[in-house]
């Protein structure tokens, strides 16, 4: 019951702040609302017992991604004037509506795997580790390949940005 109330509060705050990101004309405040939106999503992870995921959500999105966004805003000129409106409102509306329709369609037609009552929420760290790195059925090789790919991307960015 308590978790349900918490979920609805967090969901309302999350949707509200997501709307504020889009509607706010002050680009810095919009970024702050985005950070808050990330934070409410971490809260929703906690309500479903995904503690490790919630921690990583805060660390990566609130701690790192938002800093990158703020950095990008700082390096943008004319921030004080706010975000200028788009010259193509009609195509934006059509694409936005199409995307929303696709999302709603997917949510409604997916055959969700519903479990009642809720399973006991236990620590998930070990379970995630076993799922990922189990020698038999895990994803050790894809995981390593992904990290090497990220390393290659980072080195590539340095090479591109480096002064000749």
């Amino acid at each position: 019951m308590g978790m349900e109330i918490a979920f609805w509060i967090l969901a309302a705050l999350g949707v509200g702040s997501a709307l504020a990101v889009v509607l706010n004309r002050d680009i810095f405040r919009a970024a702050l609302f985005l950070v808050f939106c990330f934070f409410t999503i971490a809260g929703i992870y906690i309500t479903i017992g995904a503690d490790f995921l919630a921690g990583v959500q805060v660390l990566i999105y609130v701690g790192a991604i938002s800093i990158l966004i703020i950095f990008a805003i700082m390096l943008t000129r004319q921030t004080q004037r706010g975000s200028p409106s788009n010259r193509l409102p009609l195509p934006a509306l059509v694409i936005g509506l199409a995307f929303l329709g696709a999302m709603v369609f997917i949510v409604l037609t997916t055959n969700w795997h519903v479990v009642t009552p809720l399973p006991e929420a236990g620590p998930t760290t070990g379970a995630i580790a076993l799922e990922l790195f189990d020698p038999e059925s895990g994803f050790v090789l894809p995981f390593e390949i992904a990290s090497v790919l990220l390393l290659a991307a980072a080195i590539g960015a340095i090479v591109l940005a480096r002064e000749k």
Binding site: V56, V58, G63, S66, I67, I70, T125
Partner: peptide, 22 residues
């Protein structure tokens, strides 16, 4: 006694940076 103890500490203390920037 959170199962993710030290991860929680690291995640939470990264929020302060945003406050300083604000």
């Amino acid at each position: 006694d959170l199962n993710i103890g030290i991860l929680y500490v690291v995640a939470i203390s990264s929020i302060g940076t945003i406050g300083v920037f604000m």
